[in-house]
Design a protein around this nucleic acid. Structure first.
Lengths: 240, 240
DNA sequence: TCCCTCAACCTGTCACACAGGTTTGTTCTT
DNA sequence: AAGAACAAACCTGTGTGACAGGTTGAGGGA
């Protein structure tokens, strides 16, 4: 375990804690650890680095919050797979503290999701396409239950992002769900009538069809139309 | 201070710690706290929630790691402004643990930065445009010092993202710098000769000119050309 | 070979203590 | 009246020791 300091982003904690974070990070990199690989125990690491267990716990806790590692009672920390929750928390916080607006997030979503739809059309296999289509079908079938339509809608976008086969797109799209859960009902309820709600579902069906066909241009266009329609509804509902 | 549990993303910590995180988050939301606003002290919060100071420290530590709050010796925690370091850490970790490739990041960058360039052209004021142009000029002037060219290059892209006036774009683009610092020298060194390096700098100048002119279409095209050229160089250098 | 038990290991939480930093209020000087 | 200096109160970062409860792996028995 190297204690050399690797210059990197500051973690926002104390000096010793920061040093332990750097040391653990260096250890992960130097040993090419992958998700699931174990780290030394808190006690061993404290002895090794000449700090108290408290400091190691602080460091591990910070790294766990960032989902760089995975901690749990009774077992040693392990390197973690990236997940959407970090960015989701950051976005939720940013919206609640008026640092980012919902419309700004939608602009980012539109930018990214036109690309993920096109990539999904290019890179999908038959199972991917079936999964995306099934979600559009589920939206139609669960029309009477807005909560379920919303869950299908969120899963639809995330599945397309996953089908882009670019985990960073999946990560970013996956982070929208917390904010989406707060705004989606407003958009749904703001529709003047059921015909408009059906129109939104038809937009999803068009995206799914383009992905299934393997047509990236059509997929991107369908996604653009969907976003433009949805943004208009949210603006009309007063979400800025 | 409400102790009600707000359903949200799990923080990766213990049960009590998670509850304190939820309580603090609820407090921030319920009181419409903005960046800079103070939170209760660790000791007061521990008494209020009926847990030990250790647990509050764990919760605050996690929230600080996520840059939701800002902690420091001798003073109470405050609500924090969002910053790029969280996503930067996540990306760096993802690359080092082979969860995201550099090429995948570049695809995301291209998608986003074509949009930020176009928005910057639409939304820039004279000072913005001057700032962007100055960075392109600095790249040319510091040509003999690769390290400085790289810093100007990174600042160039971040300034454009900021000029998009969408903080989420700025956040995402700002997160690339750690990984970029690791790959940029490879790309620069992989160029066959100085003529190719000048060509890259001319690409930046073209973007700056389009932004200054206020032409979003030209800005997007120039940014696309820049990325396509840079991606080719990194691929040729073996970065996948 | 599979299942159960148990010992060793491990983390989450608690209480207490101390070093060093920040904030606030009061007093003094200009 | 405004600014500077000082001290007390408040506050966080780190350390120590303890205990409750969970995980893991080895050994033994069916």
């Amino acid at each position: 375990m190297s204690t050399s300091v690797v210059e990197r982003e500051d973690s926002g904690s104390g000096a010793l804690t920061g040093q332990v974070i750097a040391a653990v990070t260096a250890h992960i990199h130097a040993n090419h650890l992958a998700p699931g690989d174990q780290l030394p125990s808190e006690t061993a690491l404290a002895a090794q680095l000449g700090v108290s267990r408290t400091v190691v716990r602080e460091a591990f806790g910070s790294m766990a919050a960032l989902r760089l590692i995975d901690v749990g009672t009774g077992r040693r920390a392990r390197v973690s797979a990236i997940d959407r929750s970090v960015l989701a928390l950051v976005l939720d916080h940013a919206v609640h503290t008026d640092q980012i607006s919902v419309q700004q997030i939608l602009d980012v979503r539109r930018t990214i999701e036109l690309r993920t739809a096109a990539l999904a059309a290019l890179r999908r296999d038959a199972a991917d396409a079936a999964r995306i289509t099934a979600l559009a079908v589920a939206m139609r079938e669960d029309f009477a239950d807005a909560q379920r339509v919303m869950e299908h809608d969120i899963a639809f976008h995330e599945t397309i992002a996953r089908t882009s086969k670019n985990p960073m797109f999946a990560l970013i799209v996956g982070s929208f769900h917390v904010v989406t859960r707060q705004t989606w009902p407003v958009g749904w309820n703001s529709r003047a009538n059921d015909a408009e709600r059906w129109h939104m579902i038809e937009g999803h069906e068009a995206i799914a069809a383009a992905v299934a066909t393997g047509d990236p241009r059509a997929a991107g266009s369908a996604m653009a139309a969907h976003f433009d329609y949805s943004v208009k509804a949210l603006v009309a509902a007063g979400i800025t």
